[in-house]
Design a binder for these strands. Sequence first.
RNA 1: GGUCCUGUAGUUCAAUGGAUAGAACAAGUGUUUCCUAAACACUAGAUCCGGGUUCGAUUCCCGGCGGGACUACCA
Length: 597
Amino acid sequence: MNLETILSAVVADAVKTLYGMETEVNQIQLQKTKKEFEGELTVVIFPFVKAARKSPEQTGQEIGEFLLQNNPVVSKYNVIKGFLNLSISKNYWLETLNEIHSDSNFGIKPVTESSELMMIEYSSPNTNKPLHLGHIRNNLLGHSIAEIQKANGWKVVKTNIVNDRGIHICKSMLAWKLFGNGETPESSGLKGDHLVGKYYVIFDKAYKAEIKELMDKGMSEEDAKKSTPLILDAQKMLLAWENNEPEVRQLWQTMNGWVYTGFDKTYKQMGVSFDKIYYESETYLEGKEKVEEGLASGAFYRREDGSVWADLTGDGLDEKLLLRADGTSVYMTQDIGTAKLRYDDYPINKMVYVVGNEQNYHFQVLSILLDKLGFEWGKSLVHFSYGMVELPEGKMKSREGTVVDADDLMDEMIETARETSQELGKLDNCTPDEIETIVRMVGLGSLKYFILKVDPRKNMTFNPKESIDFNGNTGPFIQYTHARIKSVLRKAIEQGLEFSRLSDTQLEISEKESYLIQLLTEFPTVVNQAGEEFSPALIANYIYELVKEYNQFYHDFSILKEENPNIKQFRLVLSESIASVIKTGMGLLGIDVPERM
RNA sequence: GGUCCUGUAGUUCAAUGGAUAGAACAAGUGUUUCCUAAACACUAGAUCCGGGUUCGAUUCCCGGCGGGACUACCA
């Protein structure tokens, strides 16, 4: 039982005994005591003053006295205005530290046979160009939220729906066919996804030139866009693809193959992975059947021209197209199809889509449609909607060449980490392999933390010129603290010190030290909250707070030079527990922490 | 027009309805015969505007103003 639960019960008891007032657990507001006051936990007195018919101060005094008399965990109290500040006994903290230290899975709920299954879709790239900064946020959030939900006891299946077909793919293919001269990743030395992306850009340029030409001849822009030779050819190619023409299919497979090889590298570098990948080319025809079912059941209706619609005006939304007049499917139909396939493949209890907030409307509609079609998890599907990553000048625009490429960015971060390490002379005694591992951890840690510490719902600004800091509230700051702790622990082991558990739990410890233990006890709550709110940022902020406090402690207290052996042992146990929570917490963010740096 | 998200120091981010709104970066200053100074300490600086609910509002409600997204027989 945690401290809050214990104290809430006693406070409820106090209020009942003293004032005859029955209280619900949620009426008792326990919060952390602000730093400028003495104590660790604070009871807000205001809700009880009416029943007490006394001033807040007096009420606080009486409740404080009751707690002191009736629970050994409370060692002292003081009242300021309507706030009752409680000091917790040192012994309680030390016993708690022992428990935390001996629990190798502290903060993590086990996944069992009876755990429910959560499927998390993220990444979902197009195969016509490489991944960029926006994808990085998506991937990091998706991976992190999967780790967090696992830590909350969910069975998690990570999935990716690859958008591998459509007109945009044909554009790259066509440009390659026309201007590529048989160029391959091998012949050019270009990463496959970048090579294909290059031809997508080439297409766009040539296409624009054709539009301009037609407009110069007096055609309207709208008409010109529809009638250039290139776009007509691309459409022809799409048709050929749909008709399974071998030549087009062959080229499609080859070029997509290049892209996948490239993506795999990027994913690996980013440290993300998937349990099951779906391809739109395999799912895009799947939704029709479901739509027909919905039509039969009366959930949807057919218009005179043959197109199929869902009327969502009853839900406060518009009417939504599900099948075109010619019977072909649209985006929504595909998502229904994909949902069906997934439902057939896994016993899904909860479905989570990590997709940008520009698709809020789409998922609102999808949720209602899936519900109408009888998917149990339809109504409760989660659109984990995150904000855009913007540059100082505004949105990234591929046409203006302001897209920040994922591979380039990660490489730059690693290089910066290398330079900084060299300047500081941190890695002088390391082997080249060790150096490589560490600068990679630090560079990527910096990038990942930068992105994940922000509330996912909010748009965020990324300034490539100022690049990402390595000081302050950053990944490397946290990694550095971990490395320092590990270094102390290594020395302790060399000295033959024993710190597997506290032998003395009656020590006099400082406020700073008991506060660190208190922070540790909050970790499971934070993990839980991060899961419920789908917010890796909560974990990031928590770890930062912990690390900041630890650094102050590290600065002001010595560990190995402490003369009292029991205190020394305590500080080692404390430090090791903190290192362990740092590692676990950063792991939930998908960030590795080094043993030295 | 409609729907949704959002507005906090110069900048990037925090704050279950609680006490004097926290950090970091940038600026300025200090700390190293001492376990890693990628650290620590100090100085200065902010809730878009107006109402309402409340003992108490950055937080909840209403109305403005500003920013963003969506509102395709594209995906």
